[in-house]
């Protein structure tokens, strides 16, 4: 039983880390712009596609050592997807700032359709094999079986999260981002270039999403153009669970959602004596979300300032 539990725990941590990375993109964008970026799941999907394209390109050109090729391709896909995010914000969201919150949200929705169908048109709708970055070998850890891919995902994701936390808390640019999420007007009055903070957020968020996509694709070995929709929705749930706008909240929410999902799948049938099967896993996740929101409307780590100040009086 214990090694089964341990194995599930590692699995939960790996998938939770992926959710957390995507949730960071949602939460940072929401923090500065109060925008639900429905296109964010597509950045996640673009990650593995761009990586594969770059990697096979590098190999085709002769390439260096395979490790270097992978590393270059990974960093380059972060940058490319990040720049794409900045461009999309500039052209599809920025012109709509003065028009309430529904218009940018639907523009994001439109961008999601554009990105997804652009990939579908270029590479076809069918799932494609994703080349392994690290060979998947099982490691025996404390009685449970862990694969190198799971460990790799976990380590890389934690490194990215630590890096982001240090960046946001310790650098001037990070302070800009935090100030802009605190109050748009006050920070611009204090001379912070809020638009730059927004661009930065739209660089980091999609970049992290792309990294999560590469992890996810190497975990399952395939990628397809629609992979971002469901995962995006779940990661968004994770962001809300942790308290949208809060960076540690997104990480916590990601790991929590991973745990709920994995342990729900593993133990729900046992606990309910077989009445509730694993297929209700997602129902379970959404139900937990609704419950959390009912009792803690700002999410687990969201700021518990009074309702009137956190949410604009005029909702939509």
């Amino acid at each position: 039983m214990f090694d089964y539990f341990l194995q599930q725990l590692i699995f939960a941590l790996a998938i939770g880390a992926i959710y957390g990375l995507i949730a960071l993109g949602y939460t940072m964008v929401y923090g500065v712009m109060r925008l639900i970026n429905f296109a964010h799941g597509e950045f996640f999907m673009l990650g593995p596609y761009i990586y594969t394209f770059l990697f096979s390109g590098l190999v085709g050109l002769g390439g260096l050592a395979p490790v270097l090729d992978s590393a270059i391709a990974i960093v380059a896909s972060f940058v490319i997807v990040g720049l794409l995010g900045v461009a999309i914000e500039r052209f599809a969201y920025r012109p709509l700032r003065a028009y309430g919150r529904l218009a940018p949200m639907l523009s994001a929705l439109g961008m999601s359709i554009v990105l997804q169908s652009a990939v579908r048109v270029t590479v076809g709708p069918q799932p494609v094999h994703f080349p392994a970055i690290v060979p998947s070998t099982p490691i025996d850890a404390l009685g449970g079986m862990v694969t190198t891919v799971q460990l790799g995902i976990l380590i890389a994701a934690v490194l990215l999260m630590v890096g982001l936390t240090l960046f946001v808390n310790g650098t001037r640019l990070g302070i800009w981002i935090r100030a802009a999420s605190e109050s748009w007007t006050t920070s611009s009055l204090l001379g912070i270039r809020v638009n730059r903070a927004v661009s930065l957020v739209f660089f980091i968020g999609p970049g992290l999403g792309a990294m999560a996509g590469i992890m996810y694709a190497s975990y399952y070995g395939i990628m397809q153009p629609t992979m971002g929709s469901v995962i995006g929705l779940k990661a968004f749930t994770a962001a809300i669970l942790g308290g949208i706008g809060s960076i540690p909240g997104a990480m916590l929410g990601g790991f929590l959602l991973g745990a709920i999902e994995v342990f729900g799948t593993a133990f729900l049938p046992i606990l309910s004596f077989g009445y509730i099967g694993t297929e209700y896993r997602d129902v379970f996740a959404f139900a937990v979300l609704i419950l959390v929101l009912l009792f803690k409307p700002a999410g687990l780590l969201g700021e518990t300032v009074s309702e009137e100040t956190t949410v604009a009086k005029k909702d939509y």
Partner: peptide, 9 residues
């Protein structure tokens, strides 16, 4: 619930 939270629920 208000605004986005209502949307999510």
């Amino acid at each position: 619930l208000r605004g986005d939270y209502l949307a999510i629920v």
